[in-house]
Structures are given as C-alpha cells and as structure tokens.
Design a protein around this nucleic acid. Structure first.
Lengths: 125, 125
DNA sequence: TCTCTGATTCGATGGACGTCAAGACAGGCG
DNA sequence: CGCCTGTCTTGACGTCCATCGAATCAGAGA
C-alpha cells in the first residue's frame, strides 16, 4: 500500500506562536480547519484523552508505554494503536531508550488548540 | 427505537467555572475523559470545525442555517447532520424563529475544553 | 547465539461515521 | 386550504475506526 500521508503543512504545527486567532473571533479558513481537525479527532476518544493527559502530566514530561498500558482494560496492541494515532496527529513524540519506549507531549500544538478554543473570559459588555 | 441516551452528567458541561485542571497538570479521570471526549470528537471534522467557527464568530452570536449551508460543497442534509452532531456534543444550541433556524455557540464548554488544553506559557525551570 | 521481554505491525471483525437522495415536517403567503 | 421554501429525518452505501489475537521486530542478558 502507498505511504501517502504527508499533508502539506498549510498550518505550521511546530510554530511556537499560536497560528490562529480564536475560533470565535474570525471564521477559521478551510485549510486551517483541515490542518487542526485531526488533532481534535485524536483527542476525541476517551482512551486517547487519558493517554494524552498521562503523558503530558507525567514527571519528567515523559511516560513509558509500560506504565500506560496497565492503566486500561485494553490489550497492548490497542494501546499501541492509540499512541500511534496521537503520534500521527502531531500531539506526541516517541523515543525508544533500550527496551522501553517513552512518549512525550508536544506543547506547541496543545497551545494552538487551546488558543483556537479560547473565549473572552466573560461577555460583560 | 428506545430513546435511552442521557449519559449521566458526571461532568457538568453547563458549569460556568472550568470543571477540570489542565490535562498536563494532573491526569484526567476516566469519567472526565468520557464526558469531554465527545466534544473533541465533534470538533474533529473539518466541516464541523468551520461550522463551529462560523457560528461562534457570527455577528449577534448566532448564525442561520441558510447562511451556513452555502458555504460548503455539501448537501443540506449533510450540513444538518453535522449541526446535529455539534448540538448533541453540547457545543451549540438551536432555535427556530419563523422559517429559519439559528445556531448559537455555548461558551462554557468551549472554555472548559480550552482550559483542559492550556499549558504553562513556557516550561522554564 | 538463543531466549526473554517490551512494543509494534498485521489481519480480521463488528460497529460507527460521512455523505447523499428521497421523503417528511414547519412556517409563511396566496 | 394549498403551495412554496427552508430544515430535518430516514434509509442506504462505502469507508473509516476500535479492538483483538497472532505474528513480527528491537534490545538486553545469559
């Protein structure tokens, strides 16, 4: 099967600065939506949301798969599949060190997603 | 078919105050993940992300279906289906006024999602 | 080198999802 | 009342997804 993922980086997911104004401020363009929707989709599963949190909140900023897997009533392959999904969405990075594989959150894209959802604190007016 | 959805409100999606600390601060519990994942999932489609933005950024805080539909290369039923998904995820409210139906964003849940994704501005230390 | 453990990939399966055409519903207007 | 316009629901179809068991890959250690 062909590899063919490599969506063209219409929005730079690695940028340190938020790429876009809040969703409620101006209409998000189709290209931006296409670039960021996969990240939201990846977070749209309870297991992956917990995985993301466990990784992002782990001491040292990284979590071992060996610590993640037993936290769920799921098989190893399934957890591995979810981690791959998070990886392909650009939400985490993986690094093998010896026997174990460690996952680490990518704060930039999390910041971008949070910025997109941000709302004026209170519609006082 | 039986109605029976009515997931018990483990997390109050209507609360004005953020329900949860940031995802990267402490591990999000399974119940919270189960409550909020559907909202992320609803935003995980490019069309719905744009719809959400068009609604949230519309003047007067509301958008008419008649203005949303022609913005996409999709049929009316498909847009209607996406709007229903956003509605069932608690992200928008719908109101019929005469011939037209208007959708309006729910800022509370957007704030909750943004708070969950929020990250310390710079990991100094 | 052989084996053991941890992690991923492969293949299959049942269910959910995005989309459309056709039909139904709601409200305004002759 | 009957028609028209706008919106939603229904039914169908093809694709994607979550999950598992089995097989495979990667290092570590004897």
């Amino acid at each position: 099967m062909p590899k063919q993922q490599a969506s063209p980086p219409v929005v730079d997911l690695n940028a340190d600065t938020p790429c876009c104004p809040p969703l409620a401020q101006r209409r998000v363009p189709a290209e931006t939506a296409a670039a960021l929707a996969p990240a939201f989709k990846a977070l749209g599963d309870p297991v992956r949301l917990q995985l993301m949190s466990m990784i992002a909140s782990a001491e040292g900023g990284e979590a071992c798969v060996c610590d993640l897997t037993p936290a769920f009533d799921l098989t190893g392959p399934t957890i591995s599949h979810h981690l791959k999904t998070l990886r392909e969405a650009g939400l985490v990075d993986a690094e093998r060190r010896g026997t174990w594989v460690y996952y680490r959150a990518r704060p930039q894209i999390l910041r971008q997603l949070a910025a997109l959802l941000s709302i004026e604190p209170a519609p006082r007016a």
